[in-house]
Simulated assay, not measured.
Amino acid sequence: MKKIAVLRCLRTSNNCTGSGCLKAFNNKTNAFAVYEAEETELAAFLNCSGCGDVQMPNNEEGLRKKLDRLVTIGVEAVHLSGCTKKKDAQGEKHECPVITKTAEYLEQQGITVVRGTHH
């Protein structure tokens, strides 16, 4: 059974239930369609640890502990929710630098990073 995790933005967690990500996972649609023929388990649904502004202090140590736990429990793929990209002044979306660094760390640990869930 393939173990999957979903990582979303801490700021978004203030007003998002995660239902879109969970529905896509449960129905194996959108970015989860690649697992249509596989048995999967949602092993973790986690938030980043903030991006360093006053309301959301960056807790790099806490995030590293969460990521290392994903390795320990055998997660094979982490899907980055669409909320991990933010719009700039021109309306174009760019991945948060904390998320980019997080994705690089996960890949170094042998975990596949997929950019997308239900968007």
Rank of each mutant, 00 (worst) to 15 (best):
M1C: 01
K2R: 04
V6L: 00
V6I: 14
L7M: 10
R8C: 02
L10H: 00
R11P: 02
T12Y: 00
S13A: 14
N14H: 09
N14Y: 13
N15C: 14
N15I: 10
C16G: 00
S19H: 06
G20Q: 14
C21Y: 02
C21M: 03
L22Q: 13
L22R: 13
L22F: 15
L22C: 10
K23Y: 03
A24I: 08
A24K: 05
F25R: 08
F25Q: 09
F25I: 05
N27K: 14
T29D: 02
A31W: 09
A31T: 09
F32P: 04
F32N: 01
A33E: 11
A33I: 08
E38H: 07
E39F: 00
E39D: 12
T40D: 09
T40M: 06
T40C: 10
A43N: 01
A43I: 02
F45L: 07
N47M: 11
G50K: 03
G50Q: 02
C51W: 03
M56T: 11
P57V: 03
P57M: 05
N59S: 09
E60R: 12
E60I: 10
E61W: 04
L63A: 12
R64Y: 11
R64D: 13
K65N: 11
K66I: 06
K66T: 03
L67N: 09
L67T: 06
D68T: 03
R69T: 11
L70H: 02
V71D: 04
I73H: 01
I73K: 01
I73V: 11
I73E: 00
G74W: 02
G74K: 01
V75M: 01
A77W: 00
A77N: 05
V78I: 08
S81Y: 01
S81P: 05
C83P: 00
T84Y: 00
K85W: 11
K86A: 09
K87L: 05
A89M: 03
G91P: 03
G91H: 06
G91W: 05
E95G: 07
E95C: 01
C96S: 09
C96V: 04
P97R: 08
P97D: 09
I99Q: 02
T100S: 14
T100E: 15
K101Q: 14
T102A: 13
A103C: 10
A103D: 09
Y105T: 10
E107T: 14
Q108W: 08
Q108I: 10
Q108L: 12
Q109D: 08
G110L: 10
V113Q: 06
R115I: 12
T117Q: 13
T117G: 07
H118I: 08
H119E: 15
